[in-house]
Design a protein around this nucleic acid. Sequence first.
RNA 1: GCUGACGUAGCUCAAUUGGCAGAGCAGCUGAUUUGUAAUCAGCAGGUUAGGGGUUCGAUUCCCCUCGUCAGCUCCA
Length: 647
Amino acid sequence: MSGSTALQPLRLTLPDGSVRELPPGSTGRALAESIGSGLARAALAVKVDGQLRDLDRPLESDAAVAIVTERDPEALDLLRHSSAHMLATAVRELFPGARIGFGPSIEDGFYYDFEVPRPFTPEDLEAIEKKMAEVAERDYPFTRDVVDRADANRRFADDPLKLERIAELGDDETITVYTDGPFQDLCRGPHVPRTGRLKHYKLLNAAGAYWRGDERRQMLQRIYGTAWFKKDELDAYLHRLEEAKKRDHRRLGRELDLFMFHPFAPGAPFYTDRGTTMVRVINDYVRELNQRAGYQEIKTPLLYNKGLWEISGHWGKYREHMFLVLDSETGEHDFSLKPMNCPSHHLYFGTRKHSYRELPTGYATFDVLHRNEVSGALGGLTRVRQFQQDDCHVYLMSSQIATEVRRITDMILELYATFGLTATLKFATRPEQRIGEDAMWDRAEADLRAALEATGKPYELKPGDGAFYGPKIDFDVSDSIGRKWQLGTIQLDYAAADRFDLTYVGEDNTEHRPVIIHRAMAGSFERFMAILIEHFAGAFPLWLAPEQVRVIPISDGQTDAARRLAERLRGAGVRVHVDDRNETLNYRIRDGEVWKIPYMAVVGQREADADTLALRVRGAGRKQEIFPAGEFIARVAEENRTRALVP
RNA sequence: GCUGACGUAGCUCAAUUGGCAGAGCAGCUGAUUUGUAAUCAGCAGGUUAGGGGUUCGAUUCCCCUCGUCAGCUCCA
């Protein structure tokens, strides 16, 4: 405690630098009231020397303080954590025997785990939500009590999970209990002042969750919810969920006929003709980038004897994720489908001698990989068992790292920009568990960082998050609705060359170990497809669209003209179809919009006579434009060539 | 893998307490020849995911298998 005596006033410094004096033991609320009654009404908590505290907790010493209201970023956390308590309060009233686990605030909401005899049903959730409204109505204060261990154990005698947590608390830790009405919870706090402050929330779903995420422990029933300060924020969030559902790649993949799954091949997609076209277009683009970088594209075997996996270390650490294959001659499962490309590339590199003159040497491969994910981990194209990566391994001398990393970074950012994706960079440095000398890490991190700085892009530092064999740069991409995906990665590897005994002959005519860079840009094509589908909501830019132009003759009289136009477009490398079905023009226009075709070229008698077309741009409605056929073909070809994002 | 929910025509969904499996869209056939988001009529479409059980009778109730979906420590 500070040396202040009971008679000396507290000196509280506000964010604007002004100082207020209040009697010792005054609460945050008293401070807020002394500033203004409006602020006192808005106050949710108080920040004392940077730490959040309950509004009604006495201030003990001079400090820098700030009143926290809805407008502070931390306030949402507070709101959601308190909402979790209110949820538990309601559950306890409806299910008196329910034992409680943890109930934190999370991104966009909160959850609470309960140990109950049976899982919650959707009807339960409705009832619980109603009960929560009652609890809010009763406007209980959240009160904080400091208790000793014995008291805590007594209070939670019926809640073994809480007792377990209490037992873990150190003797020097303050144990606090928060109470709102009939409910009390072991909790560090802080909370909003009263349940009445919780107004705009919704329970979303319930699902099982292992106690502490440990599959060996009992399964609890978790209820997820979301909470916001304003009704329109809650509505906007729920609307966002709806929108995200609408652009769910699984739904669009079916509606736009891009890919499918069959029960006989769980976790392995079938691509339709349209989906295959997209994969090919993306492939071609990555190929072009690889070629420009001077990387070689190679194809390597899919199936290997375990000898390879023993060298790579997969056999020991990764075997459960590999699809083992029975060798009928030996009767043993001595073969495995490859889960990664690196061992193949290392093997290939090692089959011949390399001069320092040929470094850096890059191998790129689009081969199919298999990883045996547990069934519960599968979902759509983002979590699959079979996939392809835009994988590349570059073998180089350590003196070449900075230049090469810079080159790769530019390449990756260019790729993202082409799809209208923006990336943030993360620089991950040496982890606790690692191989190699500190000097090596110093050098590697310095090189990576220099390369990173050279891009001029801001980056986030993630100390200790590197791979055990080297530091890395991760690329997080934000899509059009703000979701983040980790896509690209550049990893320095100082271990593989040793394991595979890879060498190059240096200028000094002796053998040296190369450094290896693992590079992925799009990551897996499957996941990248999913991200693109959701990013564009299925309305792909022309160059990526499976069907780029649909030619629509108005009536039978123009069918031949339409076909001739399509033929000319096809000649210019355009993916085009003629919709001469026996349907009304309106029907076919609508169909084109539903299928999100970038351009519809309508050909009536006027257009047929003049060798023109009436262009309808996707989403632009009736706003159409008459184009001479030649001009239109040139325009489409140009968009294709430049990979234009918008028409 | 575990917990829960779900699985009905190609797609989206119906089908009282267990009582003859339906509709819209898509498909096919015909009529219609269309000027910018659904023309009309007819036809066809199913071992209700698969298997077993209870029952006079199962889409419905029970069990098993397969698959799909949600979730499985962003730190009391």
